[in-house]
Design a protein around this nucleic acid. Structure first.
Lengths: 226, 226
DNA sequence: TTCGGTCTATTGGTCACACCTTTGAGAGGA
DNA sequence: TCCTCTCAAAGGTGTGACCAATAGACCGAA
């Protein structure tokens, strides 16, 4: 894990070890990681474009305040999810998911391609059989794929870009006790209903059933320990 | 406008002039912009971290497919909004806003600080007086500030990060005919209601009135020409 | 004393050049 | 036909030099 040295710095910043306002210099970085100026600047450039740093002449590299971070960049999401504030990150991602998925389902019902409709139906059916058979591992894979199809079918690239985020949340939910582990029958029904509504181009129904699904998540989120 | 050469390339990619799969080389870039390899690599590094490019040895710099783009990065949003597909970008941003703001309002009612409550009330009142006086320029400023406060008060950094996006959408809405230009009385009432609900910590009410506001936007979006 | 301009050391920004590392693709043999 | 081996093309890294901006110290006039 960890591609380059910038990975280390990125983690330290998102983790809070390097607090906003802290100042580094290229020389610090070169010395610390035993790399050349060229390489150090490369990494800094990345962190800069992720909103974690700003470089100022005669000053150095200043750690940016949290509101400046690109919290939607996959790299940053990854760092946050493996930091000591992972739980908070999961909660925020889940809230985002709750907000977006019903809207995405509605749009998907309007814009989905034929292939996407088939895929949604297929995955919903697969979820049912895997869920009822108790094959949880494979169930989760199908679940992730299902939500990805819906998000992509929305035709909105900003929703589609959240597919990985939702995958992350669905995969990690059990680790944080934010969701029931065993798929509940009503959830299976709701997935079916969403798939059918998307396939039959019924936006309101698609939204309603997806709303049901995320409301379950919301409830689990609210009753989970702070 | 346009910070460095990477700005030009970023625009060409998001615009579709440089299509996904196209291949550049560092030498191409150096020659085209008359810059050194170091500088060229700096820019490439940025475009890479925005998901617009991937560099592969022995091949060059390959323009990434659209799903790989970091469409939430402020830079990319800016490029898309000034590209020839600006309208599509606006629509997507607006849909995102529609999805997120009701949820943010609900959370804001639970988590807002005292100062944020005061600010929301103040801005709502200001919107009313400015709106009724027909001072549209200043009205829009207050409107933007209002929505920013709510998003920030949600306590979710991913919602807060959308404040600039919403500002962009609100500012640019008249240019795209996606919203009525004159603030309608019901909208003023709804803003007031959201502010009060947030101040009095009534999450359901806050959500409902924000929902009313974005439903107006949704309606305008649906009846606008494709 | 206070304000404003100037001067300078510090730090990032750019450049040229050399060398290392990876890898696609073609040459050549089994 | 298929596999392997080689090689050149491209990005990746390192070095040292110099340019450009600027925070902060310094100094002088009001």
């Amino acid at each position: 894990m960890g591609a380059g040295f910038y990975d280390v710095l990125g983690r330290e910043i998102t983790n809070g070890v390097l607090r906003p306002g802290s100042v580094l210099t290229l020389e610090d970085i070169q010395a610390r990681f035993g790399i050349s100026r060229t390489t150090a600047r490369d990494g800094v450039k990345v962190l800069e474009s992720l909103g974690l740093l700003t470089s100022r002449r005669r000053v150095g590299l200043v750690v940016s305040p949290r509101p400046a971070w690109n919290v939607y960049a996959p790299t940053v999401i990854g760092w946050r999810l493996t930091s000591s504030h992972a739980r908070q990150a999961y909660i925020e991602l889940t809230q985002l998911r709750i907000a977006v998925e019903p809207e995405a389902a509605e749009l998907a019902a309007l814009r989905r391609s034929g292939a996407q409709a088939d895929e949604a139906l297929r995955l919903a059916a697969q979820m049912r059989s895997l869920g009822e058979a108790g094959r949880l591992e494979e169930f989760m894979v199908a679940d992730v794929a299902f939500h990805r199809v819906v998000l992509e079918a929305s035709g909105n690239s900003m929703f589609a870009a959240l597919a990985d985020v939702v995958a992350e949340v669905l995969t990690g939910r059990t680790q944080h006790g934010l969701m029931p582990e065993t798929p509940m029958p009503e959830a299976l029904d709701a997935h079916d209903a969403v798939a059918e509504a998307v396939a039959h181009q019924q936006p309101d129904r698609a939204r309603a059933h997806m709303q049901f699904l995320v409301d379950e998540v919301r409830a689990a989120l609210e009753e989970s320990p702070a």
